[in-house]
Write a protein that binds this DNA or RNA. Structure first.
Length: 652
DNA sequence: CAATATGGCGCG
DNA sequence: AAAGCGCGCCATATTG
């Protein structure tokens, strides 16, 4: 028995079933407004695999429950129902099932209610998989795929479909039971989670709109799931020629560095092996470790050879450290991006990432398979991987970025009028902060920046770099580092190290900053007090994060919770803003009007692709949607920098 | 053999 | 590493 509870009998239906049975079943689904659905597929690839079997479950008006397993050939009998726009479907991992259905030729046009997303709003630290959440919420356990269908050869790419198709032939009851469990569990969890979300009060700036977590789910996350599905579906065009062209040169350079490192050591070394490197540097060369690793579960701290440590060694004249830094740089690029990316490209030269809606505790997205949110920035990447992200012939890209989004949200949340004024005047925020905090005229700082640039370009003599110019530049750098760092709760030690100053100086800088912006200081204090009082930190739309560590007696835990309590309202609200902007862009219906697709998001940056002819029609619409994402505008304008071009680099 | 842990590092 | 927040992926080493 798969379940440790009473279950309704599972129904099996296929195209071979009697016509009247099928028709009765279709009719009953048509009358039901909330249906849970799950797919069994040929595999897990969202751009290739298709549905083999699918299961549905719903509650009858009389209180009984139906669960059934159907063969994929019956999907087409439900097409009219799938095409209803106001129908409520319930899934676990909705985008996956919708991809599988689409790959099988079925568009699901109704609303996608994803119980993993629901679960993530309530239990952000727990796993959101069906099995795990069912065990947690219902106390039920059931057998997994391999436990049900026996040992399989996972190296065979067709292992999933082989197991399922064999089961249909040889043990139909087992297949029916297994598959319909998933839809049934999804339905039961939905009922539980819906009640819990409705009960879950929250604090948002718009209580009449988002008074509890169910409001947030239904009004924001549900439409968002479908927006993300469309982004995943569209994918992003990759220039394989570009990647293969840099593959050779990068590899050659890596091999050259490998030989160089072996020569330096005088015996073989695998530069990817931290163990061998420690042996070499700390035992053979007798270098004294200055930095240690964090130490994992066992808490064993080993001498570190990361970027900071190697840079320090390089400065001390250890030539192997220089070579190793270059080696690291290139192998990272090669393995993760040049090779890794090519493996993920589909038959149309497009990559389809997964935008995960239920991972980040702040409500941000994450991106995986491949991760399109950590592609190297062209400033730091001499091979310009981002140039490989391009568009179809006749199309172009739009790249639209929020400018200093988190800093603006901080100013608005803290109601720091002087900082707000900097944004209203259109000033550079770091220069503005430097001016106010360190009492230097804004113009002088701006001019210092220009002078520095010209001297670097050789347009002005070195003598222009007066002590005062340096002072202005340093003020801007300090203001910038503090501005970013404070959002994350950076301490004086780290600030001192980053700026190359003493700890006392760093403390003084933080003091100066905080006393010039007292409401910012108050905002951080209020954030931790809110977490202390309610146990949670909140975003502007009422997404919340549970922070039990805020009351811990252990300093490390409590301090971390305090930093998270301060950061969540900013990072999480930025995520809310991006999310709402994407929903607004989707509602603008760029596809039907202009042939444009939204294709990617990198936290504060949206990317679109469409025909060149209409690009100038689309740009102002995107800007408008992004500037006003929330029910009301904030005290700070949200400005967008927007560009067009044929690659990710050119469009920025 | 696969799954997990660790160090390291890419992004906002 | 440092009271720096939030992610995912690579390679190696270890564990089962």
């Amino acid at each position: 028995m798969s379940w440790n509870i009473e279950m309704p009998d599972a129904v099996w239906l296929s195209g071979d079933s009697p016509a009247h049975e099928i028709q009765e079943f279709v009719n009953e689904v048509a009358d039901c407004k909330e249906v849970a659905i799950d797919t069994e597929t040929t595999g897990l690839n969202i751009s290739k695999d298709t549905v083999l079997y699918w299961s549905v479950a719903w509650y009858r008006p009389n209180g009984s429950t139906v669960r059934a397993c159907l063969r994929a050939d019956l999907l087409y009998r439900f097409e009219d129902i799938f095409h209803e726009k106001d129908r409520n479907w319930i899934f676990c991992n909705a985008k996956f099932d919708a991809h599988m259905c689409k790959n099988t030729g079925i568009d699901i046009d109704g609303e996608y209610h994803d119980i993993s997303v629901m679960h993530s709003l309530l239990y952000e630290e727990m796993p959101h998989g069906l099995k795990e959440m069912t065990a947690q919420l219902q106390g039920w356990k059931w057998r997994g795929f391999t436990d049900t269908f026996g040992k399989v050869d996972r190296k065979d790419p067709k292992w999933i479909q082989n197991a399922l198709i064999t089961a249909e032939k040889e043990n139909l009851a087992l297949l029916t039971e297994y598959a319909s469990n998933d839809a049934f569990g999804t339905l039961e969890n939905y009922r539980t989670l819906k009640a819990q979300l409705q009960e879950a009060g929250t604090w948002s700036l718009y209580p009449e709109l988002y008074g509890n977590l169910w409001d947030l789910f239904k009004k924001v996350e549900v439409p968002f799931t479908k927006v993300l599905w469309k982004c995943e579906r569209a994918g992003m065009r990759v220039d394989l020629g570009y990647l293969s062209a840099i593959e050779g040169p990068v590899k050659m350079e890596i091999e050259k560095l490998e030989r160089e490192l072996v020569r330096m050591r005088g015996k073989p070394v695998n530069p990817n092996s931290t163990m061998q490197l420690r042996q070499w540097f700390f035992e053979e060369l007798g270098i004294k470790p200055t930095k240690f690793t964090k130490g994992g579960a066992k808490g064993v701290k080993e001498p570190s050879l990361d970027f900071d440590a190697l840079t320090a060694l390089a400065d001390d004249g250890v030539t192997a450290a220089i070579a190793l830094l270059r080696y690291r740089d290139l192998t990272k690029l090669y393995g993760t991006y040049v090779i890794g990316l090519q493996d993920k490209v589909d038959q149309y030269s497009r990559v389809h990432t997964r935008f995960n809606q239920d991972v980040a505790r702040t409500g941000r997205l994450s991106s995986s398979d491949p991760n399109l949110q950590n592609i190297p920035s062209p400033d730091n990447d001499k091979f310009k991987i981002r140039k490989a992200f391009t568009c179809e012939p006749g199309n172009c890209l739009i790249v639209a970025d929020y400018e200093q989004l988190e800093m603006r949200l901080l100013a608005a949340a803290a109601m720091e009028q002087d900082m707000i004024d900097i944004f209203l005047k259109g000033w550079d925020i770091h220069m503005g902060n430097a001016s106010l905090v360190f009492g230097l005229p804004y113009e002088d700082i701006a001019n210092a920046k220009k002078t520095d640039k010209k001297v670097k370009e050789g347009l002005l003599p070195e003598s222009e770099m007066t002590e005062y110019v340096h002072k202005c530049l340093y003020a801007r750098q300090a203001a910038k580092t503090i501005g970013f760092g404070l959002n994350y709760g950076m301490g004086a030690k780290r600030l001192a190290a980053t700026l190359g100053r003493t700890v006392e100086e760093a403390e003084a800088l933080i003091d100066q900053y905080m006393s010039r912006y007292p409401t910012v200081k108050q905002f951080f204090k209020d954030s931790t007090n809110t977490a202390l009082e309610y146990g949670y930190a909140f975003t502007i739309l009422g997404r919340r994060r549970f922070l039990p560590g805020i009351k811990s007696n252990r300093m490390v835990d409590r301090s971390r919770a305090e930093r998270q309590a301060s950061n969540l309202p900013i990072q999480g609200t930025a995520a809310d803003v991006a999310k709402m902007a994407m929903i607004r862009c989707d509602e603008a219906n760029l596809h039907d009007r202009f042939g444009w697709h939204m294709i990617s998001q990198v936290h504060d940056e949206l990317i679109f692709e469409g025909p060149e002819e209409t690009v100038d029609d689309v740009i102002p619409i995107v800007r408008e949607c992004m500037m006003h994402p929330l029910p009301t505008d904030l005290a700070v304008p949200l400005t967008i920098s927007i560009g067009k071009g044929h690659t990710w680099v050119d469009a920025k």
